[in-house]
Amino acid sequence: MIKVKGLTKKFGDFTAVNHISFEVNDGEIFGLLGENGAGKTTTLRMLATMLKPTEGTAEMGDFDILKEPAKVRASIGILFGGESGLYDRLTAVENITYFAELNDMDKESIKERVNYLVKAFGMEEYANRRASKLSKGMKQKVAFARAIVHNPDIMLFDEPTSGLDVSAIRGVHEFIRECKRQGKTIVLSSHSMSEVEKLCDRIGIIHKGNLVDTGTIEEFKEKYNNPNLEEIFVRLVGGKHEH
């Protein structure tokens, strides 16, 4: 369970995230929907303890991001941006193992887990090839495996499909569904309505740092009396602020 409580981030005078609060139930996918510069990445970085909130806090599972940041980090996995971000000079397995070691797994369980992931993602053929020699699709799988090597309860995805081609996007979506199947609690940021509609149980619309509204997709459609989520979004975001 994730509980975000009045989370705020200021960069100097500029408020990037303004007192946002929401909850994500166990095993749920929560979609953070917003335009460029809305504050999605900043929010997720605070949840991942990379940035210190100016105000407010959040509970990630059993741990508070301010009080026990190391334990929070140990219980989350991230996939930020479309780029896989692997160490080119390490092999696929070494990339995955490094993150397992960093998360304090012991040798035996690392071996077991890495073997399992290599099989699960079908990476046998290139498991010991250097990342620089892998195709984009292969790299993506390594990045997935790395993100969940320590079997985190919570997954944070920040625009995980940005800049990807169609088949890579499908790969990401499958991975997110697989994480859900495994019972992980998931926050996904996106500016794509269709992506959010396809994957998320509940969504929150963020605009200029403010969380404008939250609810299930059905609730949104009912509340705004419109079957088209995109139109709802434009009304909430564009309508309120641009005119």
């Binding site: 970085r45 991942a48 303890t49 990379m50 940041p69 190391a70 334990k71 980090r73 140990a74 989350i76 991230i78 930020f80 941006g81 780029e83 896989s84 971000g85 692997l86 160490y87 080119d88 993150f99 960093l102 998360n103 304090d104 790395r146 993100a147």
Partner: peptide, 14 residues
């Protein structure tokens, strides 16, 4: 630059 920094910073070590 290679986008490996954020994943690294979200692992357990401080």
């Amino acid at each position: 630059e290679r986008n490996t920094f954020e994943p690294l910073l979200t692992t357990k070590p401080d």
